[in-house]
């Protein structure tokens, strides 16, 4: 093996150790209700983490805290080893440069349960708008990127349709394309298949699987245990605002150690 190759492999190894998102002692309260009760989580580059658990366990809230749709009550968040949130009792304790936060936040893409496509824009415009107005990319480049990502999700032929004329599965794939057009390093999926008719779930999971194979770092809140088993590097079972059990899919899904995990899996399998 020559030296360059060796370096490449070493870099690759270092890369896979690189933390993309790290959460320390994250707590989130809505009024008197504590939804997240101290979450610690570290997601490495290229890792696919699936979060499962009953409704109300705080899975979605955790995701929403990661990209600032919710502000945490206390705890710290690091994105690519840079501190982006440091709060105690609802107050920010470390002042962090807001430009830096916006920049790092752009590395996090999100896909929602209800797709949230922009209904007044065509498929193409949905994918082009953020690169154009947020990243100030010129129209031609934005167009080329949009076509590229739409081809990746198999929907380039629908580019001139309005979202309402697409099936739920197609809409969700456009939403994925819209997110990856911003070239994020981390993708968050908030129950991406929960609003879909059963026969449309497969195509979305397939798209997500392909994305995972490209090495994208992904955090997926899902009820699709089959997907978690097949694609996840790590499965996290959350219950009542805490991480109850975590590990490889074989351990957590096939041989859960905690009673609560077993009870949950028995109910949904």
């Amino acid at each position: 093996m020559n030296e360059d190759k060796l370096k490449e492999v070493q870099n690759g190894l270092e890369d896979s150790e690189k933390s993309m998102v790290r959460v320390e002692e994250l707590r989130k309260q809505f009024g008197n209700l504590e939804v997240l009760k101290g979450i610690d989580l570290d997601v490495k580059k290229g890792e696919v983490v699936c979060i499962i658990g009953p409704s109300g366990s705080g899975k979605s809230t955790l995701l929403r805290c990661l990209n600032r749709l919710e502000r945490l009550t206390s705890g710290k968040i690091y994105v690519e080893n840079e501190l982006t949130e440091d709060r105690v009792n609802g107050r920010t304790v470390s002042k962090i440069d807001s430009d830096k936060i916006s920049r790092l936040n752009l590395d996090i893409g999100m896909v929602f349960q209800n797709f949230n496509l922009f209904p007044h824009l065509t498929v193409l415009e949905n994918v082009m708008i953020a690169p154009q107005i947020v990243k100030k990319i010129n129209k031609d480049d934005a167009y080329n990127t949009a076509i590229q990502v739409l081809e990746r999700v198999g929907l380039a032929d629908k580019k001139d349709e309005y979202p309402i004329r697409l099936s739920g599965g197609q809409q969700q794939r456009v939403a994925i394309a819209r997110a990856i057009a911003m070239d994020p390093k981390i993708m968050l999926f908030d129950e991406p298949t929960s609003a879909l008719d059963p026969e449309l779930v497969g195509e979305v999971l397939e798209t997500m699987k392909e994305l995972a194979e490209t090495g994208m770092t992904m955090i997926v809140v899902t009820h699709e245990i089959g997907f978690a088993r097949e694609v996840a590097d790590r499965v996290i079972f959350m219950d009542e605002g805490v991480i109850c059990e975590e590990g490889g899919p074989q351990e957590v899904i096939l041989n859960p150690k905690k009673e609560r995990t077993q009870a949950f899996l028995n109910k949904i399998l």
């Binding site: 893409g109 209800n114 949230n116 922009f118 953020a130 947020v134 939403a175």
Partner: peptide, 27 residues
């Protein structure tokens, strides 16, 4: 306009003003 529209816009990095001008108000 459903709240998800503003959330999607913010998740894509738009500011409040951009989201209002380009996403919410046109709808």
């Amino acid at each position: 306009i459903p709240e998800g529209q503003m959330e999607a816009a913010k998740a894509l990095g738009m500011t409040y003003g951009q989201a209002m001008r380009r996403i919410i108000i046109p709808q």
